[in-house]
Design a binder for these strands. Structure first.
Lengths: 191, 191
DNA sequence: TCCTCATAGTCAAGAAAGTGACTAGTCAGT
DNA sequence: ACTGACTAGTCACTTTCTTGACTATGAGGA
C-alpha cells in the first residue's frame, strides 16, 4: 500500500496523465519512487474507483488524447492518514551488496566490473539529480530557497536524498574497488 | 531471484540453520538483506532440491534438533554466475520519502513526528553496525584490517555500507526537520 | 504450577511488484 | 514506403513479499 501514496504524492502539485506519472517514476528521474507503467495505470484506476483522484479527458491534436488526474479532498485525507501512521523503515536491498558480501569467495576481477558499472550509474544519476535541484531552486542559494522559496520544498528534499544516496553508492563502490585491488596486489606478492 | 543469492552468500562462511539465517536477516542486524523466516525456509528447501546447498541434521540436547546447511560447489558456481551478470541498481523506496514529497500539503507537526522516529531508528541501527564493525576488525585499525586482515572483508564492506546508509538517513531526517521548523516559524511571523 | 520466552520449523492465503507482449496514432528520417 | 521513436494505454501471467496462525521442546521466573 505504498505505490498508491506515491502516486497521490506525485499528483499533488500538478494534474498528470498515467503516462506522465510513469515518466516521472521512470528509471533515472525518480527521486522518491519507481514503478512500471502497468502498475501506475492499475493504481490510478483503483484510486479513481475509490474517489481519491478524479480523472478528466484532455483532447489533444497531433497525438492521442489522454486522461489527466488530480487528487481529491478524499485523496488528500488518505495521504494525511498515511503520514500519521508510522512509516516502516526500508532496508538496503541491492544485488551488488550480495555480490560484495561474497567477495572473498569470488573472482575479484568480475566484481570490479560490477562495481565499475554501478559507479558510473551512480555518478550519472547523481549528476541528473543535481541538475534537477539546480532547476528547482532557480537563482537562489540552497539555504534561502529552503527557508523562503515560494515553491514546494518537499520534492526538493526528496531529490536531495536521492542525490546523496547515489553519491554514497559511488563512494562506496570506489572504496570497495580500492580494497579489492590492494588485496589482490598484496596476495600476488606486493609489500 | 536475489533472495536465493543472499541466502547462499550468508552460508558461505559458516554452516547455519534456517533459523540462524533468519536471525542474521532479521530487522536490525541485516547488513545486506532482509527476509522473513518463511521465505528463508522456502528458499533453503528449493536450494537443497537443486543441489546448491547441502543440509545436515544436527542433534541437540536441551533444544530442538536443527538442520544446518552449507554451500556446495554448484552453489558457489551459481553465485559466480550471479556475480558475472549485471546487477540491477535498486532505488530508494521508503514510506518516509513519499511523506516528505507531500510535505507542502501535509501538517508539519505530524511529519516531524515521523522524522523523529526515523531519526532514532537510524541512529540506533548505525550504532549497531558500528559495534559489529568494531568486533569484525578486532584490534586492527580499519585500513590495516582491510588490507592485511585475515578474515573476510566482504561482510565488513557491506556492513560499512549499511552503517553509512543509516547515518545518511539520520542526517537527512535532521535537516528536513530543521527546514520544516524554520519555515513554520517564518510562516507564523518570524524574521 | 503456570506463564512467558527462545529455539526450530511449517502452512495457507493474499497483497504487491515485476515481466513480456500488445494496440494505436503521430512524427521525423531514409 | 518503410523504419524507428514518442505518446498513451492495456492484458495476462509470474514471482516475490507479507500476514497470520500453528506445532513442538525446553528453560527460567512468579
Amino acid at each position: 500500500m505504498a505505490l498508491r501514496h506515491a502516486v497521490l504524492a506525485a499528483l499533488l502539485d500538478e494534474e498528470l496523465s498515467g503516462y506522465q506519472v510513469t515518466k516521472a517514476f521512470a528509471a533515472g528521474v525518480a527521486n522518491f519512487w519507481h514503478a512500471l507503467p502497468q502498475q501506475v495505470y492499475a493504481e490510478l484506476a483503483k484510486l479513481e474507483k475509490e474517489g481519491l483522484v478524479a480523472g478528466r479527458e484532455v483532447v489533444q491534436e497531433g497525438r492521442p488524447n489522454k486522461r489527466v488526474f488530480r487528487v481529491t479532498g478524499e485523496g488528500l485525507a488518505e495521504l494525511e492518514s498515511f503520514a500519521s501512521a508510522a512509516a516502516k523503515p526500508s532496508f538496503l536491498r541491492e544485488d551488488l551488496l550480495v555480490q560484495v558480501q561474497a567477495a572473498d569467495h569470488l573472482d575479484a576481477g568480475v566484481l570490479i566490473e560490477r562495481l565499475t558499472e554501478r559507479y558510473a550509474f551512480a555518478e550519472a544519476k547523481a549528476a541528473l539529480f543535481e541538475e534537477q535541484l539546480h532547476r528547482m531552486r532557480g537563482g537562489l542559494d540552497e539555504a534561502d530557497f529552503l527557508l523562503r522559496g515560494a515553491s514546494r520544498v518537499g520534492p526538493y528534499l526528496t531529490c536531495r536524498r536521492g542525490r546523496d544516496f547515489e553519491r554514497a553508492n559511488r563512494d562506496w563502490c570506489r572504496e570497495v574497488m580500492e580494497v579489492l585491488r590492494a588485496r589482490g596486489a598484496e596476495g600476488r606478492g606486493g609489500a
